[in-house]
Amino acid sequence: MSGMSKIVKTISGIAFPFITIYGLYIIAHGHLTPGGGFQGGAIVASGCAMILVSYGSIWTMNRVREKNLSILESLGAVCFILLALLGLGFGTVFFNNFLVGTNSLFGVVPAVGSGLANINTGGVIPLMNFAVGLKVIVGLFGIVLVMAYASRTKEGKK
């Protein structure tokens, strides 16, 4: 797929930072507001797919290497499983929330009931959100990028 017209490129370039910020906000506030790693990652991947469709797959493939995407996705998965295993090591069982109640990083226990939200709560849940978010962003964008690049080669052969 080659790129689209200049209007589409400009508008998607303007909209892309806002979509990315919104998706990262949903990932970072996963333990406070609706959403989480998967939802925010899907939104950021949607923004990246918009850039891909408007600028063309060759332009994007020259800037983002597919190998790096694979490495980042594996990094997200390894971080997720490592956090679960740390629950086994520091706590009691697999997926134990060992950080809650320690008053250190993300370890504050919030007051019961609805009140002002504190972002420094949640134990390992925000860290798992970051890991899953990285994995979903890179995985979904990698799928779309690889498929678009494959369709480009077919067009070139024609």
Binding site: P34, V100, P110, T121, G122, I125
Partner: peptide, 17 residues
């Protein structure tokens, strides 16, 4: 959920904990 996992969002505490 709020006292055990420390997350205000009960859905996320179920999904990740």
């Amino acid at each position: 959920a709020q006292t055990e996992t420390g997350a205000n969002n009960a859905v996320t505490s179920v999904v990740f904990d």
